[in-house]
């Protein structure tokens, strides 16, 4: 399927989802769905660097929080439209991705992983000490009274924005996956030294992939202040974003765009259900156990089972 055709179908599916959801009466559905969609973007973003390129990023929360805080600062300063905040937040996080990549990408993979964690905690410290953005006390964002485009509630509007952003991220991930860039990234993942020798511009490709991945993580955060309306650093930098962003692609399968989507929808929905029915701590425990279980026993995730089943069927016929 060509990229244009895939994008059209994905967009149509998104629009159908938005229109169809307006018949749902319960507003809680939109809260839950927003969170799941946020994880769809985060895990798709993580997978561009983690799955395609083979570099593990523990700093998802840092990039996410960059998006969150750039929106807060912009909103406090200018009250710009949501679209402006989305674009700026994405660019800020992408820039941070390039910076981090430039500083650490010459090193072996696990140093990169540790550096991402370091970046997240550095940013956390700066934000905690930044009074304009609320500091350690946190910042309130008053959700605008009038809802654009005639949606019944602001959360329904945010949900629709999130659907479109998810569609965009998935399309980007698929385009990357099937492009020359994606093949270069796969070469880096499989054997960086060999790729370099074969003439793949590894540093450049890795910087593109950190920028894309970081920017998309920031993108997932830009609308967050309006979703939750009170943001404080501990919440914005919560480790659960990092764990989920890793666990979802691992569970779904890291080699295609479909894996993170499956993982995020599955794990995100389960978490929403457990959070409502049992407790928040238990749902985190489930994520941790699933992550460890899949990474040790089924490293190719759910998509791995699908591929194995397809191979078996092809052999039989």
């Amino acid at each position: 399927m060509s990229n244009a055709r895939f994008a059209t179908i994905a967009l149509l599916a998104g629009v159908l989802l938005i229109v169809g959801a307006q018949w749902i009466q319960n507003d809680y559905f939109f809260n839950a769905a927003y969170t799941v969609l946020m994880y769809v973007i985060l895990s798709t973003a993580w997978n561009i660097l983690g799955g395609y390129t083979g570099y593990v990023n523990f700093g998802t929360a840092g990039f996410f929080a960059l998006g969150v805080y750039s929106s807060i600062v912009l909103w406090k300063a200018f009250h710009p439209p949501l679209a402006v905040m989305i674009v700026v937040g994405t660019l800020v996080a992408a820039l941070a991705g390039v910076g981090l990549g430039y500083l650490t990408m010459r090193l072996r993979g696990h140093f990169f992983a540790i550096a991402t964690l370091a970046l997240a905690i550095m940013l956390f410290t700066f934000v905690t000490n930044w009074d304009y953005a609320g500091g350690a006390r946190g910042a309130y964002v008053i959700v605008p009274r009038e809802v654009p485009f005639g949606f019944a509630r602001y959360i329904r509007y945010l949900f629709s924005v999130m659907v479109l952003l998810s569609v965009a991220s998935i399309v980007v991930a698929r385009v990357v996956e099937r492009s020359r860039l994606g093949r270069g990234l796969a070469a880096i993942r499989d054997d960086e030294l060999a790729a370099e020798c074969a003439g793949v511009p590894t540093l450049k490709l890795k910087l593109i992939s950190t920028a894309l991945s970081g920017g998309m993580m920031g993108l997932a955060g830009t609308t967050f202040p309006f979703f939750i309306s009170f943001v404080e650093p501990v919440g914005a930098f919560d480790l659960r974003y990092a764990v989920n962003a890793i666990a979802m692609p691992v569970i779904g399968g890291m080699t295609t765009w479909l894996g993170p989507l499956i993982g995020a929808v599955l794990l995100g929905t389960v978490q929403q259900l457990v959070q409502v029915t049992i407790s928040s701590a238990w749902n985190l425990l489930i994520v941790g156990l699933l992550l460890v279980g899949f990474v040790t026993m089924a490293p190719e995730g759910i998509m791995g089972w699908v591929f194995a089943w397809r191979r078996r069927r092809a052999r039989r016929s």
Binding site: L239, A242, L285, L289, V292, V295, P299
Partner: peptide, 16 residues
Amino acid sequence: LPGLAFFFGILFITEV
């Protein structure tokens, strides 16, 4: 690298 994800999960499980 998969080992990193493994230990990250262990960190998280212990904490929770």
